[in-house]
Design a protein around this nucleic acid. Sequence first.
DNA 1: CTGAAAGCGCTAACAT
DNA 2: ATGTTAGCGCTTTCAG
Lengths: 334, 334
Amino acid sequence: MTTIKDIARTAGVGVGTVSRVLNNTGYVSEETQQKVWEAVQHFQYVPNGAARALVTKRTMAIGVVLHDLTNPFVPSLARGIEDEARRHGYTIMLLDTDWQTENEVQAINIVRQQSVDGVILVSPANAELLVKQLQDAETPVVVIDRGEESGISHITVDHYKGATEAIAWAKHQGHTRIGFLAGPRKLRFADLRLRAYLDNMGWTDIAVEEVDQRPDLPIARADFLFEPGRLATEALLRTHPDVTCIFAANDLSALGALRSLAQQKIRVPEQVAVIGFDDILTASLVHPTLTTIRQPVYEMGVAGARLLIGRIHNEDSSMEQLTFDLTLIVRESC
Amino acid sequence: MTTIKDIARTAGVGVGTVSRVLNNTGYVSEETQQKVWEAVQHFQYVPNGAARALVTKRTMAIGVVLHDLTNPFVPSLARGIEDEARRHGYTIMLLDTDWQTENEVQAINIVRQQSVDGVILVSPANAELLVKQLQDAETPVVVIDRGEESGISHITVDHYKGATEAIAWAKHQGHTRIGFLAGPRKLRFADLRLRAYLDNMGWTDIAVEEVDQRPDLPIARADFLFEPGRLATEALLRTHPDVTCIFAANDLSALGALRSLAQQKIRVPEQVAVIGFDDILTASLVHPTLTTIRQPVYEMGVAGARLLIGRIHNEDSSMEQLTFDLTLIVRESC
DNA sequence: CTGAAAGCGCTAACAT
DNA sequence: ATGTTAGCGCTTTCAG
């Protein structure tokens, strides 16, 4: 392994000088620079990041803690983060948690140990705790997509408004009896979407926790997943056969609804219309194509990385909160 | 920032002892261990990875260089790699290259600088060069999915055999006029799938490079993508209206075919059947569901990580080549 | 403008 | 069984 000493020796200079030309810091004569670069070329020398990190306290790496890379909208997010990070010379350290709180805690320890310069938390189950731990370790953090949060930098979208737009569109299409495929209980942004549905349907006095005890409402739990979405749709249509439109809290469950309807030979959107939420890739690949609310996922990733890097470079920058707009994407299903 | 010295001081022992209990190496009395752990707890101490890496020459990180995280089958692969890596205490450093050769080269420099313990290259465009650079730097490498390769550790599937099985199934279903949606030119495994198609259709004497000059053959380029797949299907059906089955070189283009057929009100599989390749998530979500050849992507990721880690721990382990089996997944489209 | 030297936090001998 | 010490490869004063 070639070190800075080897370079210094072959270039006939001191290690300090080599360091200076490598980092382009301080004055070094044109001539000397030449000699150093030649030696670098010759040995295909790359400085040792660990040694550098030890003295500079910067690893040029940022940790990205997310629940599940295979969740359809995560890759775009990760890509946005990575692209922006790379533009600033940062590398990504990726950690999946599988929604397990214990894995989240472990992830934090890993990023602490690897001494990343900052961390992006994607929809953490336990944001408060994790953020606190990181802040204690003086590591900048940015949270993406957790619904409202206070006192920490975060990127999110206005779930409530997006769901409201979806319902507005359904009504505009003439639907009045609109069913809802709800997400998991106790997930912040799932509740926000549900809340918007209830409010816009005129059920403002019904609490989100209450819906599971209200079989009279055209609401079924689909837990953001495909198969549960399919089953929930079957159940919903059985108990509420008058429904003409189904609004799913996310695309995956909307896809499940589409499948259920196809199996029952119910025409979409003529007999029953469907609206999703997220605009994952598959939404535009199915038949009929899915009308949905698009989250600018890639851009959120970019913004998250940018925000984090800003905080890394300027510790005292004020907490920033960024809320992205959602867009109704009208396709065939509604 | 608390260091090992702080721990040593508060525990009333030397730094060597602290190191010993932290790494569980050498004998330390039960009593002393207690004191050390208490101090560790108290300070929420986590050892500095950079300092550790500097002396041990191991970062416990592995680099994963892939072309595009948003490509549908990549997340599963990455997940497999990460899960297995984590089981061994390794962390993932992720680099996208977007298929750009220059990004690949840059990625190699980054992993060299960050001194990862090993690298996994996923379908690199320029395998030979990258592997050589890494080997010069004495970094273990494993390549995933490049078709045949020699002299380097790699994981792949038998693309030829998989495509052969697909055609066999189509024939078994009674199809004789089978069209093909080819992948990009000059991509090793795309050519293998094409070769298998040609051979099984009896065109053994036609070279894969030749097909673009043979409009008489029922073959169209879909470049592994959705929209090109849709267009290629339209074109194919126009020039070869007698085709009763379309075999697409990957699922994304098969999905394009499905869309094209739906638009033309051609019933699948009654009038025209479709077979894909890969078995990405969407394949089971569309209507009709897609018959396809499954690649055990997650398992390949796991195997790749395991192979790499084996090589990290035992430099002189012989190169291993692992070929996974493909499975025909029969669904509705054929 | 450049060389020499002092650490960064940790592990791994080496003493004791 | 445990304290002490010499680096790991690099950046950054500090002289000159």
